[in-house]
């Protein structure tokens, strides 16, 4: 899959669910892309580097979300403007 196509699928797929939740497991993203995990990982890594996606970590588990989306930033006092 071409990167731009993958990006479009991920952004659309995640935005569709935005009202319900903003954080997703890696496997949820691989499913949206309909790719094997190793192929999906390369594409998703690139989206992280491009600032399309960002990580969220519980410490034990990692999740992905569209950059800046969701309520965590507010709850964790890490809005972009708040980074002292």
């Amino acid at each position: 899959m071409e990167y731009e196509e993958a990006k479009q699928k991920i952004v659309e797929g995640l935005q569709k669910k935005q009202k319900v939740k903003s954080k997703f497991y890696f496997n949820d993203l691989a499913k949206i892309l309909d790719e094997k995990p190793r192929v999906a990982k390369k594409l998703i890594n690139q989206m992280i580097t491009d600032g399309v996606l960002e990580y969220w970590s519980s410490g034990s588990t990692s999740m992905y979300g569209l950059k800046g989306a969701g309520k965590q930033a507010g709850a964790e006092h890490e809005e972009a403007s708040d980074k002292e």
Partner: peptide
């Protein structure tokens, strides 16, 4: 509902 995404709390 202001601080949390309820589906994530449920899934946790």
């Amino acid at each position: 509902d202001k601080m949390c995404e309820i589906p994530l709390a449920i899934a946790a």
